[in-house]
Write a protein that binds this DNA or RNA. Structure first.
Lengths: 201, 201
DNA sequence: AATAGAACTTGCCAAAAGACAAGAAATGAA
DNA sequence: TTCATTTCTTGTCTTTTGGCAAGTTCTATT
């Protein structure tokens, strides 16, 4: 089994305990696909036929607002799932693009294969359901952030929980993802640094 | 079959086509439960053992911010699902309360029963997965609203898409759900009325 | 290595929303 | 029906964020 598949096996078992043989069987329906920086994994307005496990790299999803400007919806790091859920599961056109921000290594599975696994392997459908629940929880946490945190607090939260994003994701995408302009993010970052400096003296 | 179950059958078939016998079999594992205004359907910090289909009435979910103030996360109207997804499916304590804002009629199913259906009825697991995908999409839409709409635009959107909420949900809950204070919502509503008056003259 | 373009920062002013207080209106309890 | 409590609105001032421009820094291309 390839190192990428080993990573996937551990990921699967972390989310739904099952014996090694079963996890390997599930991992076996995934196939490697690599992407270069700026490649598009999933295209807006097309039905998405793949569900990706991101082994290495960073991906963002984005759509456009009414002014035609890009709006970053998700920032996805390694050991996470990349999928346009409605498009993939309901066979409808995707509402967003998914773009590689760095070179990426993924394991992907097609809808046909995932359907077969879903109906024939009890452990897989438990695992799959767990993934969907996780996606909902993550979205809900994001909503809570927007409801009750200022942009500064959302930025501080991101710095604390996902500091690696700052090294690999352009600030303009981070700003968009946080729901503010790049100008505002610059000011928040400056004040954050100044505040930390004051705390130390 | 009760009128509530008839509603549920139509709802199920709208989300995943299946023949009547199968839909009735699925609906048969749901049981009626009524709630009075202000009753709590799902309790924060407890593992939730029920998944509800809301036949009639309005429900909100809420948690608390660090100041101890209530923050309304969801507003749920009839013909929708009421469920604390992580608590129900992963058997962990709920992160929010779900409260009846009006008298409610629901059909509920326990985790044990839903598990059995999930593994024995292919149509049910397709339906169930469709529900989870819908929940994700709805959360994502809310995300997008926070990222790229002003509070005024989010309010206008809500007025357009769910006008019934204005009749049945206290404005302070609406404001919280929209991520603003009741004071700000009052001003937005006043300006909205004035703007509509200007358009007509 | 040089240059063009993109990303990021800073300056200045405006708009949106919050905080707090006070008052009006609506609702619930007695 | 009356009164207490809650909800909602309005006033005033503050804070947060946006818009736009200009400049600096970084990255990509030649």
């Amino acid at each position: 089994m390839s190192p990428l598949h080993e990573t996937l096996i551990r990921f699967i078992q972390a989310h739904f305990p099952m014996d090694d043989d079963r996890a390997k069987e599930i991992a076996g329906i995934f196939h490697e696909q690599h992407f270069l920086k700026n490649d598009i994994l999933i295209h807006e307005n097309k039905v998405s036929d793949h569900y990706y496990f991101l082994c290495a790299g960073y991906v963002r999803s984005y759509t456009h607002n009414w002014q035609g400007e890009e709006v970053t919806l998700q920032l996805i790091s390694a050991n996470k799932v990349v999928c346009e859920l409605a498009s993939f599961f309901k066979r409808i056109p995707a509402q967003a693009n998914f773009q590689a921000l760095t070179a990426c290594m993924t394991l992907r599975v097609s809808f046909t294969d995932i359907q077969k696994a879903f109906h024939t392997m009890p452990e897989f459908r438990e695992f799959g359901r767990s993934m969907l629940v996780n996606a909902c929880v993550e979205m809900q946490q994001r909503n809570i952030g927007f409801i009750q945190e200022t942009a500064e607090e959302r930025y501080a939260n991101l710095v604390e929980t996902q500091p690696d994003l700052l090294q690999h994701v352009p600030l303009k995408y981070l700003a968009s993802y946080l729901g503010i302009t790049d100008t505002s993010l610059s000011r928040i970052r400056k004040e954050s640094v100044e505040r930390e400096r004051k705390v130390r003296t």
